[in-house]
C-alpha cells in the first residue's frame, strides 16, 4: 500500500501560530508541499505534507507543539466533471468514512484521510485511480 505521511498539529486560536510553524520548517530547509487548517471556536488543527515527516515532527515538538503523524492517501484525480464523485462513490459503496480531504491546488492530487486506509487504497487502485507514494508525490512536484 502506498500512503503519504501527514503531520497534524493541535493549535490554540492564537495569532502568529501558523507563521511560527512555517518559519521553523523553512529555516530548517524543509519544504511544505501543501497544508490545510481546520478550526473550531476554541482551537484548530493544522495538517501539513512535508517530505521528511519524522524529522519535521521532532523539530516542531522541540518548539512545544503537539504533533501526530497520520497516513493519508494521495490520489490523482483528473480535472474532469464527475471524477471526484466517482471516488466518493467507491468509498461510499465500501462503507469507508472520509475523515477529511484536501487538495494540492494545481496538481489534481487530493489527500484523503479515511477510517479504513488499506481498503480505500485497494478499491481506488482496482477502479483505475492512481494513488501516489511519497516518492512519486515529492518527485513529480519538482
Amino acid at each position: 500500500m502506498e500512503t503519504v505521511k501527514q503531520l497534524s498539529l493541535f493549535l490554540e486560536n492564537k495569532p502568529g501560530h501558523v507563521y511560527s510553524i512555517c518559519k521553523t520548517l523553512g529555516e530548517a530547509g524543509i519544504n511544505i508541499y501543501t497544508l490545510t487548517l481546520a478550526d473550531t471556536a476554541q482551537f484548530g488543527i493544522l495538517r501539513l505534507i512535508v517530505e521528511d515527516a519524522e524529522a519535521s515532527k521532532a523539530l516542531l515538538e522541540k518548539e512545544g507543539f503537539i504533533v501526530n503523524i497520520a497516513e493519508v492517501l494521495a490520489v490523482r484525480i483528473d480535472n474532469q466533471p464527475g471524477r471526484l464523485a466517482q471516488v466518493a462513490e467507491i468509498l461510499n459503496k465500501e462503507g469507508i468514512n472520509v475523515e477529511y480531504v484536501y487538495a494540492f491546488a494545481n496538481r489534481h492530487i487530493f489527500l484523503y484521510r479515511v477510517d479504513d486506509t488499506e481498503k480505500a487504497y485497494q478499491k481506488l487502485i482496482s477502479n483505475g485511480f492512481c494513488v501516489l507514494s511519497s516518492h512519486e508525490l515529492f518527485n513529480t512536484n519538482k
Binding site: 497534524s8 493541535f10 481546520a38 473550531t40 482551537f43 488543527i45 495538517r47 503537539i66 504533533v67 501526530n68 497520520a70 475523515e99 477529511y100 484521510r113
Partner: peptide
C-alpha cells in the same frame, strides 16, 4: 493541556 496521546488527528478526537 492536551498531550499527543489525547490528540488524535481530527477535531472529533478532541
Amino acid at each position: 493541556e492536551l498531550s499527543a496521546e489525547l490528540f488524535g488527528d481530527t477535531i472529533r478526537s478532541i
